[in-house]
Design a protein around this nucleic acid. Structure first.
Lengths: 164, 164
DNA sequence: TCAATATATTTTGAATAGCTAACTAATTTA
DNA sequence: TAAATTAGTTAGCTATTCAAAATATATTGA
């Protein structure tokens, strides 16, 4: 089989695995995968407006609104109207939400991290730079396929990634 | 940053990219991502029962049934009662469905394949074996977390993978 | 200043996806 | 052949997702 075909099959397998993991976490926590992703995004940024959240997750604001409604009802996130600009709504994890994120979701990652750290250092570097290649190719591909987005938006996203 | 953290960030980025690609294809074809995934699975196996489809995609039969209903209405897949075992329902792509799968979905992959083939051969091998490491780690992780499945099922899945 | 425009979010209405539980029909087994 | 199993569908529910319209606040130009 061609190397490129092998890569595609493996990528699909990887995505499938993470997908199944998400479902497991979901079952364990009573939080749906999209809700979980919102919470993960909030954990990384500590505070975001719902508009920023929508852009980050590539969903419409309306969708974010409904997910936030449910998370708020469960008291996992809190909304607060902006003080200076009252149109904005700042969203953040509640203590309860932060607590939940300390549990199952990270233990899954921990297992991965432990396996990863069992590798030799040279192998770790190899894997990381391979993932960089893949990520770059896929990203370029997306830029090719959708040259419609405004540059500002793309720029902003890249800055988000650069932060980490 | 730790190598393992880098790997996690890159993985998320990769998944996000493919996710966005799926949405683009979806918009381009009028077929939703889950529907598309069913069609991709069918393209690989040419013919499956809806139960096999459910197992392959890790969804309940009920969910598959409703997705198939919509794909059938669009005349992209066809259902046929089994001749020997009349409980079974064999599902396959129609000509129209096959035609659709020749378009956008593969051109996206083609772009990836072209970039991939631009790499030196040693680098291609490196990327493939890195993906294998990741896939293996994620898979083991899943087995750890869900030791409940029956062995036959796992075995069957592995054979499916082995086929390709 | 204040009317038009822009920005941020929510509401509404509709399609889809996903689940569990209950059901029909066909096959296997005891 | 009666009971159990297997394959799929149906029904009912919640959640996700979008587009379009509504609401509220900010900014800007005459």
């Amino acid at each position: 089989m061609e190397n490129s075909q092998k890569a595609l099959v493996l990528l699909r397998q990887i995505i499938r695995s993470t997908d199944m993991q998400d479902k497991e976490i979901s079952r364990g926590t009573g939080v749906t995968p999209p809700q979980l992703m919102v919470m993960q995004t909030l954990r990384e940024h500590t505070q975001l407006t719902s508009g920023e959240l929508a852009k980050e997750m590539v969903l419409t604001q309306a969708t974010i609104t409904s997910i936030l409604d449910r998370l708020e009802k469960k008291e996992l996130v809190a909304r607060e109207r902006g003080k200076e600009d009252k149109r904005k709504v700042w969203v953040s994890l509640t203590d309860k939400g932060t607590e939940l994120m300390k549990g199952a979701p990270t233990t899954q990652q921990d297992i991965f991290v432990r396996s990863f750290e069992d590798m030799q250092n040279w192998e770790q570097s190899m894997v990381v730079s391979s993932l960089e290649r893949i990520a770059f190719m896929l990203n370029a591909q997306h830029l090719d396929a959708a040259p419609l987005l405004d540059i500002g938006e793309l720029d902003r996203n890249q800055q988000e990634y650069a932060k980490k």
